[in-house]
């Protein structure tokens, strides 16, 4: 989901005055932490936004139906547990 534009920091003068937007989250994708991924079934989704509110990352975008940012979802499963219509299923990704 992220655009892969690179933040070029090759020498001290390239750095901003403050440690702001150094681009660390562009390379530090946390998807490898996951053993299973949440998959949203749009036909069961009622658009309540509970998964978006509860996602601690936040890796769920409030689209209709919601979309998951699989670059950063760590697979905690909170969205699966909170979904009132059981629209989110757990898909094994064990490698």
């Amino acid at each position: 989901m992220t655009d892969d534009k690179k933040v070029e920091l090759n020498k001290v003068s390239d750095y901003p005055e403050m440690p702001v937007s150094l681009g660390s989250m562009l390379w530090n994708k946390t998807s490898s932490w996951r053993n299973f991924k949440p998959v949203i079934d749009g036909t069961k989704c009622i658009g309540c936004g509970i998964c978006w509110k509860f996602c601690p990352e936040p890796a769920i975008f409030p689209t209709n139906p919601p979309t998951v940012d699989y670059d950063f979802c760590k697979g905690c499963g909170i969205c699966i547990s909170e979904c009132p219509t059981k629209a989110i299923s757990k898909v094994d990704e064990t490698r």
Binding site: L9, Y15, M18, P19, V20, S21, L22, S24, M25, W27, N28
Partner: peptide, 10 residues
């Protein structure tokens, strides 16, 4: 992003 994760590179 303020004060985010900073690798040994930075």
């Amino acid at each position: 992003a303020f004060n985010a994760l900073t690798s040994p590179d930075h």
